[in-house]
């Protein structure tokens, strides 16, 4: 399977995505500089984490205007798979490819630690390898991961099954204590209505191997590979 990883000035999880896709999952990966418009015919686009444009102004606000984002939007409009991780999620929200917005963590602090998320939707190309309600141990590392959406929007995305993953405790209980950043209803990741664009704050790129503390991120990558097979 062919992946394209977009690289913005200030992206810094691009290497991690490249590594996990190529060296852990054994897939092809192309790095696409933000000034390029040719995604080079991928099966899936990854918008990686980091601090595009230093997170200046608002996270993701400047990156969404990069030339490559137009191509990503076109690719998504044609049904292509797009996953945004951390800053990538923020960019996809700013670009209007995903609903909602990510604001500063409730604690006002950057938080880096392993957390747990519960997979609530398994009929997406990004979670089809998970069991319903499966708990994944995945790290977060962000200062602005507090998911917010207006009540109307919340009703919509909940009703449409767009809330794909929520923060939970080790046993899968979605509780305020298990919510690391104050996200509305513990939302950790959402997809679009068409289910081909997915964004999440936790890092499946940093949790592909046991030596790093967890291999649960592989479920996300395996799902994407499975989706390809399913579509073929």
């Amino acid at each position: 399977m062919r992946f394209a990883v977009t690289v913005f000035p200030g992206s810094n999880c691009d290497h991690d995505c490249e590594y996990v896709i190529r060296d852990v999952m054994g897939q092809q990966v192309e790095m696409v500089w933000h000034k390029e418009t040719d995604l080079r015919n991928p099966d899936c686009v990854v918008v990686p984490g980091g601090f595009s444009y230093g997170d200046y102004l608002r996270t993701g606000a400047i990156a969404r205007f990069s030339p490559v984002m137009k191509s990503v939007a076109d690719f998504a409009a044609k049904g292509g798979l797009v996953i945004g991780i951390c800053n990538g999620f923020q960019i996809l929200c700013e670009a209007g490819l995903l609903p909602g917005v990510l604001i500063r963590n409730k604690s006002l602090q950057f938080i880096c630690k392993n957390i747990y998320i519960k997979v609530e939707q398994t009929d997406t190309p990004f979670t089809n390898a998970c069991k319903p309600g499966q708990v994944l141990k995945i790290p977060i590392a962000h200062g602005e991961g507090n998911y917010f959406i207006d009540p109307e929007g919340l009703k919509k995305i909940t009703g449409n099954g767009q809330v794909v993953v929520r923060y939970c405790d080790e046993k899968g209980n979605v509780t305020p204590q298990a919510n690391p950043n104050g996200s509305l209803d513990g939302i950790a990741g959402v997809c679009n209505l068409r289910r081909n664009v997915f964004g999440l704050m936790p890092h499946p790129d940093r949790s592909g191997e046991d030596v790093l503390g967890s291999h649960d991120g592989q479920y996300i990558w395996k799902s994407i590979l499975g989706a390809k097979v399913g579509a073929a």
């Binding site: 590594y19 880096c112 940093r206 790093l212």
Partner: peptide, 25 residues
């Protein structure tokens, strides 16, 4: 916890032990 200590996915031993350990991929 305010420091991203995992980025670059090489941190085998994170803060909180006697020494941190980083792998060379």
């Amino acid at each position: 916890r305010q420091y991203d200590h995992m980025v670059r996915s090489n941190t085998l031993v994170r803060p909180g032990s006697d020494a941190a350990v980083i792998r060379v991929k």
